[in-house]
Amino acid sequence: MMQPMFWTMPQILFSVFCFLAVLFAVFTVGSRSPVASAFSLVMVLFNVAAIFAIQEAHFAAAIQILVYAGAIMVLFLFVVMLLNIESVPLDFPRSSFRYVLAGLGSLSFFGVILFVVAEGQSSLETDGYTPEMIANSGGNIRLISQRMFSGYLFTFEIIAMLLLLAVVGAIVLAKRKVD
């Protein structure tokens, strides 16, 4: 069996983006001001979008930048600006016990992922959407839209309903006084 080449150009770029994503994720959790956290998360999302683009998931990359980094993070920054909070008391708790417990919890989750990577068995059957097939039938976005409006139409409608409910709920929650 042919071993896949490791040091190709996309693979190197992929590693660089992975490293940057983890670095900015640490900044997100570790920075004291919420604005810095939000901007670090924007950088994480850009790096993740680059990772999606390298894996030829063009639609996912575009959605990641437009909706996540564009809309959702602007909403966050807007709320931070609106409430004018720079820091809250007892953010970063003093007791090291809390850090130890949190570290144990998250590291054990990472251990589960390591176990899956080392021991995982494939249970999915491949679907036949190879890169050549996707390129021949009009690209990633065309195939995704065809699939979304055929097999996933009901899910799509439910999601639209959920968004409408979330908009109404957010307005009711953020309103000054309920009449």
Binding site: V22, A25, L101, F110
Partner: peptide, 16 residues
Amino acid sequence: GALFSIGLFGVFVRRN
């Protein structure tokens, strides 16, 4: 896994 663990750590530790 790394990003999820970092996020989980943040949810556990931060109070903002």
